[in-house]
């Protein structure tokens, strides 16, 4: 208890200590990469660090534009997934008849290997056209002189890629909202009955808060899933995003470029995850994340 007074300093030190394994793992990864590349010594089988960097530099403008596009899609997909997941989860959890009626569909949708649905999403938006909410000039136009504002234009849109990403990310949030809402301890139910709380009041004061830890942990899973969804959709949508760039690199046997793009996606995914976790920690009561 006595240590509570010098909190900030201890906290910072603790944070640094917690990062050590991650930093160490990163450093080891780079070393292992360098060693394996040296051993294989063939850039067509295993790209060395320098070959990867040159591959990335060669396509730097492409990567920048496509990366902006992909991560904009990921954010749209992520937000859609979280909002729909919590919203529908609240409704389905509250109305047990709907919950029971929806169960077979939910189990089916959970068990179906989701990539198989991607073509459906893409076709529908080929037919109907994308719903563009608004467009903005991506950072690539300011970073590179060679990129025009038109080339860097990025759209925040509901399209095949973002809806599919949202679909993939939706399930954990949806299911954990239902599970969390329904695992309210009996004593709180009794407490609510005693006070004569209405159904909405029960949700507002008890159930939602009981579900919050479940929801936040599922949101963490959704980060990765919405990225997976977007990239898978880009694999087959041909022409959009960083996902298609990896396929292109494979088709042109540009291994350095491929290594670089994959690495950038991994780093981007890691950063996005950290940002979401940090945001959740700030927004929710302590102990919810």
């Amino acid at each position: 208890m006595a240590t509570a007074s010098n909190r900030p300093f201890a906290k910072a030190r603790q944070w640094i200590r917690r990062q050590i394994p991650t930093v160490l793992a990163g450093a080891l990864f780079v070393v292992a990469w360098a060693v394996i590349a040296r051993l294989i010594n063939n850039n067509r089988i295993f790209a060395s660090i320098s070959y990867t960097i040159s591959g990335v530099m060669e396509h730097s403008t492409d990567i920048s534009i496509k990366l902006t596009e992909t991560f904009t899609s990921v954010i749209v997909a992520f937000v859609l997934a979280v909002l729909l997941g919590i919203g529908l989860g609240l409704i389905v959890a509250e109305i047990s008849t709907i919950r029971q009626m929806a169960l077979p569909v939910v189990i089916f949708a959970y068990a179906v290997p989701h990539p198989i649905l991607a073509p459906m999403f893409i076709i529908w938006f080929i037919i109907g056209g994308d719903i563009t909410i608004f467009t903005f000039t991506g950072p690539s136009a300011y970073l590179f002189d060679s990129v025009t504002a038109a080339q860097a234009e990025t759209a925040i849109a509901i399209n095949g890629v973002t809806t599919f990403g949202a679909w993939v990310g939706f399930f954990p949030v949806f299911i954990s909202t239902i599970t969390g809402m329904n695992s309210l301890e009996e004593r709180f139910e009794h407490f609510g009955t005693l006070l004569g709380a209405s159904r909405w009041q029960m949700v507002k004061h008890f159930r939602f808060w009981r579900a919050l830890p479940n929801i936040t942990s599922s949101i963490k899973a959704t980060v990765q899933l919405s990225i997976v969804g977007v990239i898978v959709a880009e694999f087959i949508a041909s022409s959009s995003g960083i996902g298609y760039e990896i396929v292109l690199a494979w088709k042109t046997n540009a291994l350095g470029y491929m290594f670089g793009v994959i690495l950038i996606i991994m780093i981007g995914a890691y950063l996005f995850y950290q940002i979401v976790v940090w945001t959740l920690k700030v927004l929710t009561p302590p102990g919810s994340v």
Binding site: Q224, W250, M258, M266
Partner: peptide
């Protein structure tokens, strides 16, 4: 925690 599926083209290449 990283999207492992992004490695698909690399796996196919190898």
């Amino acid at each position: 925690t990283v999207p492992r599926i992004a490695l698909t083209p690399l796996v196919i290449y190898w």
